[in-house]
Amino acid sequence: MNTASAQANSTSSADAATKGAISIRNVTKIYDPDGVNVLAVEDCSIEIAPGEVCMIVGPSGCGKTTLLNAIAGFHSITSGQIDLDGEMLCGPGKPLADQGADRVVVFQNGALFPWKTLADNVAYGPIVQGTMTKAEAYGKAVDMLAEAGLSGVAGKYPGEVSSGMARRAEIVRALINDPKVLLLDEPYRAMDALTKSIMHESLLEVYDRTKVTIFFITHDLEEAIFLGDRVIVMTTRPARTKKIVDVKIERPRDYRLLSSEEFRVLVEETKGAVHEEAVKAFEAGERELA
């Protein structure tokens, strides 16, 4: 693959979203630290269509990250099954999914390697997978960073750029692997509103171009509705799906949407469900302390 075809490549997956279907069926996860069982996820089932933006919200500590870690292959599951495009990632007889570049994770705190420049960070995946030579990977990385508006900082180290730039570069680093699924664990937490809105536009722009399946955990309900095709509200621990909000708003979306009536109604609807669970979680916490 040569560098000139970067554009072509990123559109290749856009024509039809045929890959990246995730099927989570009856998944249960029990952590067992020092013999104290923690039931983090119980009998949770979610079907995600290819190319869907699936937003996960729920009270803190309910088991969202646990679910993401199971898909990514960082943790085993106790029972149930998770499939990707009809193939079992983990399930009976194989509790731990293999880690692979078809499901790339973008972390809450950011995990760009501080010892590599942004371009070298982005080039990392294709190099270690052996799918490109170093020069090819680097050329492609520079092109993709430029597409994301980061051409001026490609040669800088992560410590030298703003957190917003670093986070966008991290998403580019994930996308260069042409993954089936992007797994995002509160990627924009702790960002100011303005940076966040730039992040959202940039992510939507990427999504409209690639139609990659997105599994996105967040606490921000407006973010969830603005970005998502569906918002899945989880119950307090152990996590199950409490409510699914369908967001039938046309794409491409932009910021005028935020002030629309349709948007406000959806946010209110979701807020009600989340609030109920948050109160339950709080009361459960009180009981544990008492």
């Binding site: 990514a72 292959g73 570049a101 994770v105 972390f107 995990a111 390697f113 990392y124 995946g125 270690v128």
Partner: peptide, 15 residues
């Protein structure tokens, strides 16, 4: 070393 660096690398296919 932050475990997230290791996970990130592994999820990108590092041996």
């Amino acid at each position: 070393i932050d475990v997230q660096y290791l996970r990130a690398a592994q999820s990108m296919g590092a041996s």
